[in-house]
Write a protein that binds this DNA or RNA. Structure first.
Lengths: 318, 318
DNA sequence: ATTATTTATGTAACTGGTTACGTAAATATA
DNA sequence: TATATTTACGTAACCAGTTACATAAATAAT
């Protein structure tokens, strides 16, 4: 059986390459058929030069989408074959300005029928297909410009991983985990502070009993992430989102986002108006996550934490 | 403006390559994202091995469509990285039998989610397009298997060139040309015979006046091909197709075919039943042409020509 | 049984591109 | 005006494949 049929669409890249190779290989024979003294690899450079008076190396490279050393080499070869002329730019001594030689211009005339025939051959073949390859490429280039394949795959990944994640409410058996996961990242970047000990050593008393909540993220039944929604004694903020921690081995599985969502949903359910949080700008992924959750930066709130250098809020009801 | 838009469809090959390159480049990042110790270039080899117990180098090469040295190199690298095990075949000392190592099999398990995500990402992107790239490739590979791009281009070429060719009837001003073009090929492969001189020196008397015809092919108004339809004194054959000659500089422009067609049409118009011809098997393109015109080999006719070692006929009416 | 051919594989050299790096000219900045 | 930065381009080294060639084992032919 054909390899690509077996592998499936994940081999799209290789399959495209195989097709493009078989086509470019034939291109070589076609050039030979028309007896044009032109190597297929020269074609892009040759073509842009035939459409213009003269062009510098980098300009050509940009237009045809090659690197400049590639064009540099091609031009040297073409120059040796008498197809192009190199000359230094008078007003800019760095630029090597290339133009077609007399012979090159003759080739440009001689190649015209080839252009016509190849174009027609491809058009006719395209007309016989139900899915237009040319337009399909158009569409793909557009899609990939909008959102890279990498990001598309990442999204698939997140979506799939999310199936394995369940967010549950705190029970005392997670007390040690709650402390451990938080201590891990706090001591990595900062040091444990008084308020940390208070919340992490006695979550029941200092968070739950005061009207707050703690969420545990289970990844395939293993608890790997935690976060707290702490009741605030503030006329404006109902809750503070805090003590968010995800095990390093579960990073990139979107667990932070799911924990955040769970906390926000709980706050909404309880009719909360605003959520507050504090963080530090060196924790870039965290700040990023808060942004994605909808938090906006605010300034000028007193904080018991030394490490806090940024405050954010999420407005639930106007 | 985008190079490919300007160049048009004749750059289909390069355009495919550009797309495949951008996709395979992203593939590398995707592998990194999933933290699988696998280089993208190893993938095809890895994949076929993961689908089977063990395979020899050439078998793998055939399946994935690479050359065997390529597979040989890839396997060496993968072996150094502990992904595969090489072992000599007991019953055939030449074969190097490859199988996944323990680590390789672990990777095969670890890579599963990547397969799923990439497949889904591509499927979803495909679903957003009007022209299905995957199916379009299918169709193109089918089309190219049926008839290569080269042949398609050749056909376009012939079709276009045919516009420039006109077939006209002999007038005395072509007498020299008629002889010259024929003498050229006859003396190149054989020697001039008595019957040649008769027909070529006095075509009016020996061909036309006897009820035969001579056709001249003009390529862009320049006479570059000739052929004769000679009346035969035979109860079965009405005419003999003979003295077909095309200038070497006009070869490959389908002129022979157009001359032959003109002669056959004339014979048909005149209600002829059968056309006869003689040739030599070393003139392969000629024999080929006669076949394409519909002539079939026949045996056992007397001939005045020494060089004739094959006789053919075209039956016009049963 | 010997010899010729075919097959499986590895090595070397080539191909058409790339990235990395260095240099000189042009331009921006202090 | 001196210095730093940017730009244009060439050279070198690399990359993932290829073709060309050599060798040894297996198979076919004599």
């Amino acid at each position: 059986m054909d390899f690509f049929e077996q592998v499936g669409k994940k081999a799209l890249g290789s399959r495209l390459r195989r097709l493009s190779e078989s086509i470019t290989e034939e291109a070589g024979e076609i050039y030979r058929l028309y007896d044009i003294g032109l190597q297929p690899k020269w074609f892009p450079v040759f073509y842009v030069l035939s459409q213009s008076q003269e062009k510098a190396i980098t300009t050509i490279a940009e237009e045809i989408g090659h690197s400049h050393p590639s064009v540099s080499k091609l031009v040297t070869e073409m120059s040796r074959n008498g197809l192009v002329i190199e000359k230094k730019d008078r007003s800019d001594g760095r630029r090597n300005v290339i133009s077609l030689s007399k012979k090159g211009r003759e080739v440009a005339v001689k190649i015209e029928p080839l252009y016509i025939d190849v174009n027609n051959a491809i058009e006719q073949a395209l007309a016989q297909t139900r899915n237009d390859l040319w337009k399909a490429i158009d569409e793909w280039e557009f899609l990939l410009k909008q959102k890279s394949l990498l990001r598309r795959v990442e999204e698939q990944n997140k979506q799939r991983e999310a199936q394995y994640v369940t967010i549950i409410d705190y029970t005392p058996k997670y007390r040690k985990l709650f402390k451990q996961l938080n201590e891990e990242w706090i001591t990595k970047y900062f040091k444990m502070e008084e308020a940390d000990h208070k919340a992490l050593d006695h979550p029941q008393k200092n968070i739950i009993d005061k009207g707050g909540y703690i969420f545990i993220a289970l990844y395939k039944d293993e608890p790997l992430g935690v976060c707290a929604l702490m009741k605030m004694n503030d006329p404006y903020y109902d809750f503070e989102l805090a003590k968010m921690a995800v095990s390093p081995k579960a990073q990139g599985k979107n667990i932070g986002w799911l924990l955040g969502q769970a906390a926000i949903n709980r706050a909404k359910t309880l009719g909360a108006k605003n959520i507050y949080l504090e963080s530090n700008t060196i924790l870039k992924p965290a700040i990023n996550l808060y942004h994605k959750l909808g938090f906006k930066k605010v300034a000028g709130h007193p904080t018991p934490y030394e490490r806090s250098n940024i405050q954010m809020e999420l407005i639930l009801q106007l």
